[in-house]
């Protein structure tokens, strides 16, 4: 009963805060670039408006186009259910094996790519091709990162991995965390991999795929990408500060965890905005270098961890 309550708290809190995170990053970025910026609560209004709007469905598309938003959002919700974002030991956290996390992320990406291809335009295809390339190169880095966590902690689900990961006693986790951050940037289509603010065709990846979506479907896809950003922000923060999560369903613990969650997303949003204001986007055809670095960070963590255990 306890664990179900914890999962519910996490589910509702993450779903509620996701648009705020998107708005907050935009606000911080605007302030850092000398603009006033919109309210961080604007995405709530944007999604609500999109839900009311009429949809334009391209005549080139088939049933797959309509299936895409549902699968993408459902796969993101799965991650919300199984990952340790606000609480440890949720009811579904036993499904959070790293292979399943990587697989479900890939499932969502695969459908997003098919949505991009469905539009029959060059933009959709270009975004789809690029996203597919990124996803297939992120996969080895992600598996290696989580394998490091598994070797260090001896746990199999991300939930127990994070609960017992202590960077002070096992420094081998540091390269793995660096890799996790790089993966998080790539998965969420942020700098230096993709520019989330642009609609310039030559630079876009994620935006190009959802170009043909409108109305409620666009709201679903945008919400899914906002949720994913929230998930990864919280994951990166939680691996560094696992003590900020609730472990039992007492009122105080939950309120504390929720408070920490808001603090964490504010800090991570600020750091993300700072990063995006400081560095430039990489050329797409140099992306394999970035992802190779992430991969070798993860691999270095794994090797360090194995040496550490053997010694």
């Amino acid at each position: 009963m306890n664990s179900i309550l914890l999962t519910l708290v996490q589910f509702v809190a993450t779903l509620a805060i996701a648009p705020f995170v998107v708005g907050l990053v935009r606000l911080f970025k605007a302030r850092l670039q000398g603009r006033h910026g919109a309210s961080p609560f604007l995405p709530y209004i944007t999604y609500a408006t999109l839900l009311k709007k009429q949809m334009v469905i391209s005549k080139s598309t088939s049933w797959v186009f309509r299936l895409v938003p549902f699968v993408v959002l459902a796969s993101t919700l799965f991650l919300v259910c199984v990952l340790p974002l606000v609480v440890f030991g949720g009811a579904l956290s036993h499904l959070g094996h790293f292979m399943i996390i990587a697989g479900v992320l890939a499932l969502g990406t695969a459908f997003l790519v098919m949505g991009g291809l469905e539009s029959a335009s060059a933009f959709g295809g270009m975004g789809a091709s690029r996203e597919m390339t990124l996803a297939s190169l992120v996969e080895p880095a992600m598996i290696a990162t989580f394998a490091t966590f598994a070797v260090v902690t001896g746990a199999f689900t991300v939930d127990t991995m994070f609960a017992s990961a202590n960077i002070l006693t096992s420094p081998a986790l540091l390269p793995a965390i660096a890799a996790l951050i790089m993966i998080a940037l790539a998965e969420n289509a942020r700098y230096p991999v993709d520019n989330p603010a642009t609609h310039l065709e030559l630079t876009m990846v994620h935006e190009a795929m959802v170009l043909e979506y409108s109305g409620p479907y666009l709201a679903m896809l945008e919400y899914a990408s906002g949720l994913k950003l929230t998930i990864f922000s919280l994951l990166v923060a939680n691996v560094l500060f696992p003590m900020t999560l609730a472990v039992d369903a007492t009122l105080i613990a939950i309120i504390m965890a929720l408070g920490w969650m808001i603090i964490k997303v504010v800090i991570v949003s600020f750091l993300l905005a700072l990063l995006e204001s400081m560095i430039a986007k990489m050329r797409f055809y140099r992306m394999q270098e970035y992802l190779t670095i992430a991969f070798f960070f993860a691999l270095a963590g794994l090797v360090f961890a194995l040496i550490h255990i053997t010694l």
Partner: peptide, 10 residues
């Protein structure tokens, strides 16, 4: 039901 078909924007 609030939707209409149209060709892809290009």
């Amino acid at each position: 039901k609030h939707e209409r078909p149209y060709h892809t924007w290009d």
